[in-house]
């Protein structure tokens, strides 16, 4: 029983981080039509900034909010400096076909990932460093009894839940949220309604950057920080979006939680070496039974 509860809590905590990563990926996919491979590179970079601040004596929370700001700025910069100029070159020979127009930004995101990882290696040297958690990562004790969860698990779950609630309210209740949904669903009708779709695209990149930098801050206390530690998280986050439905925000979040729980149960009841086998099996089953993902819409499969 205790093992079971440990698996549930650990899985929910890591699942909520994967949900954040998935949220970032789906946002940019829906808002800009790009699978952003640089996402966890951005998260790594902003977490390094936070880590440097903490090492220089600043408090965790100052570092936390600076990292979110850096993440937002990186997302914005990628759109303004790389993606927008790229889409402005639609007339060029290499971008003539729709297939290339879909592929080139993805390749560009891989290039950005390389740049971010190399830059981090040059600035902070490539050695691994730890990253602190704001609260204890040991099992909480309650009346002498050790609980199956840690204070940090609760912290992560709480912060991600708040983030998801804020995001939902933003998308469902605000004009800007409506503008973002409309632009993603039908850019032509959105533009005819006076929505500036290019600004909306930049906003998608910015929010996605903030979400991924949050994921970076929450995942590194249990994973150590190096220029490519977060690559693995991107792979898991991407799998979560495919399972949940690439074009659905709630789908990506659900996919994240499912993957977190599956990984955690395999870890507790089998062995860590089976984790990737389990992920692959889950992915295959979803793709065979429901290729568009749990909440995805069918059209997206033509890509």
């Amino acid at each position: 029983m205790e093992q079971f509860l440990t698996a549930v809590f650990a899985g929910t905590a890591s699942g909520s981080i994967y949900a954040l990563v998935a949220l970032g990926l789906v946002l940019v996919w829906r808002g800009a039509g790009v699978i952003n491979f640089a996402q966890m590179g951005q998260a790594m970079f902003s977490t390094y900034v936070a880590s440097t601040l903490i090492m220089n004596g600043y408090s965790y929370w100052i570092a936390f909010f600076v990292a979110l700001a850096v993440g937002t700025a990186l997302g914005t910069a990628i759109d303004l400096l790389v993606m927008r100029p790229l889409s402005g070159k639609r007339g060029s020979a290499i971008l003539a076909s729709p297939a290339m127009r879909a592929t080139v930004p993805v390749i560009a995101s891989l290039g950005i990932l390389g740049i971010l990882q190399s830059a981090a290696g040059m600035i902070w040297a490539a050695e691994e460093r730890g990253f602190p958690a704001p609260v204890s990562t040991l099992g909480l004790s309650f009346g002498g009894e050790i609980m199956p969860f840690t204070a940090f698990d609760l912290f992560v779950i709480g912060i991600v839940l708040v983030t998801l609630i804020i995001t939902t309210i933003f998308f469902q209740k605000t004009g800007m949220g409506l503008a973002m949904r409309a632009s993603a669903l039908n850019p032509e009708v959105a533009r005819l309604s006076g929505i500036r779709t290019s600004s909306v695209r930049t906003l998608s990149w910015a929010i996605s950057g903030a979400a991924s930098s949050l994921a970076g801050l929450l995942v590194t206390p249990s994973a150590n920080l190096s220029p490519n530690t977060l690559d693995l998280i991107l792979i898991i986050g991407f799998t979560a979006t495919v399972i949940g439905g690439l074009d659905s925000l709630p789908g990506g979040v659900i996919g994240g939680f499912i993957l977190g729980l599956v990984i955690s149960f395999v870890n507790v009841y089998s062995s860590p070496s089976d984790i990737f086998l389990a992920i692959l099996a889950l992915l295959l089953i979803v793709l065979l039974v429901r290729p568009q993902g749990i909440l995805g819409s069918k059209e997206v499969r033509r890509v």
Partner: peptide, 21 residues
């Protein structure tokens, strides 16, 4: 009939007024 089927009727109408709001 250019509307966005995944949005509600109210949201489709509101969409046209966002820039003036």
């Amino acid at each position: 009939h250019a509307v966005i089927p995944q949005l509600t009727v109210a949201e489709n109408i509101e969409m046209g007024s966002l820039f003036r709001r």
